[in-house]
Design a protein around this nucleic acid. Structure first.
Lengths: 199, 199
DNA sequence: TATCTTTGCTAACGCTGTTAGGAAAGCTAA
DNA sequence: TTAGCTTTCCTAACAGCGTTAGCAAAGATA
């Protein structure tokens, strides 16, 4: 008898509908105005039902955090496979990262808005680990190719990600959409960074 | 008769005590848990009195935003005056910026946590304008000295600030205090950036 | 059919930002 | 000094928030 299976299925349906409703609400009104009560209203259940599926509000946000990193990681990987040289890959990845942040602002906000994932957290989240390892591998290739033993790849990854995040997060919040200017900044950053790697 | 003067003085005293109490609360419990009621309690007035001095909670935060930029701007200026060459100045400024962010985390959080100041806002806030102009002037010097007409100083300023902010904001949230590693990243960034300016 | 478990609800607690409306105190002028 | 007016300040409320205790109804099991 598939009673437990059906129950599990139904349970998953409610859980999914919570995430779905939350995502819709976020896109309509932003993270700031998301509330458990609104979610409950949207899924046509009472408030405590939401708490049967998520420990608290933060857990719901965390779900999107993970989802965001998963999505970004996939896009990064796809980009990587389109190019052959490491330098090209790194440059293209920076653009992909940039594009992702601007086209999925809601994701990016919840990925970094709540608090940047610390090194300890990164190791426990496969979604982030997957993302960082892809980039670190490319950086290592460039460094190795230039027999630059000085450059610590881990340090360079941190630099790369930090700067990219800085560029994105600052330009994301500038209301004006001076896209060309932004692209120039990004181009500037990448050329400078890669030069630093090859040194 | 100095009645109106006394009233103004008393009014300012209350206003100052609000900011003072808010600042103390923030340092004790963080921005997240700051509330108007707690402020009112601390200054031994009722809640609406707070609203007589500040339109809303955001206005109080904005006050610290401005204060933070003023403080940072002053430190940047002091740093600049300690060095003679532009490259040295820029490097020292980056360290000062970094130091400010880590030693005044509460300020830095409210300066950037609420939403980065857009270009439109920057122009209306003398505190920020003062800060950006100081740096832009230095960058311009370096660019001019290298007869590098290509480099748009405005663009370079944006790049400089963005990257610095990225480095800081990511490393600020990493709970572990691997200070040496952080300093290496910063050093790496500066050398790479200045090379890009001289090109 | 009786028992037990799961499911989902109402209602509440203790917070939050914000504001309406009234009481009291202080000042001004007759 | 007293009447009127202005400023100051409070109580109390509104509408929202995250979260949880406790109970009713529905479903599964024996």
């Amino acid at each position: 008898m598939g009673i437990v299976e059906r129950k599990e299925r139904q349970r998953k349906e409610v859980r999914d509908s919570i995430l779905e409703a939350a995502w819709r609400l976020v896109n309509e009104e932003g993270w700031q105005s998301l509330s458990i009560r609104k979610i409950a209203d949207a899924i046509e259940y009472s408030v405590p039902v939401v708490y049967d599926h998520f420990e608290n509000k933060e857990a719901i946000l965390f779900e999107f955090n993970k989802l965001g990193f998963k999505l970004l990681g996939e896009k990064i990987k796809e980009t990587k496979e389109k190019y052959s040289t490491s330098a090209e890959q790194l440059e293209a990845i920076a653009y992909t990262y940039w594009d992702f942040a601007f086209k999925n602002q809601e994701y990016y906000q919840v990925m970094f808005g709540l608090g940047m994932p610390g090194c300890d957290q990164v190791k426990k989240m496969p979604e982030i680990l997957n993302f960082t390892q892809t980039i670190e591998a490319i950086i290592k290739e460039i460094v190795d190719a230039n027999s630059n033993t000085e450059a610590n790849t881990h340090l360079k990854l941190n630099t790369f990600w930090s700067m990219l995040h800085g560029l994105v997060s600052i330009n994301l919040m500038t209301s004006e959409s001076k896209e060309e200017f932004n692209k120039m900044i990004l181009k500037d950053f990448i050329s400078v960074f890669i030069k630093g790697l090859e040194k």
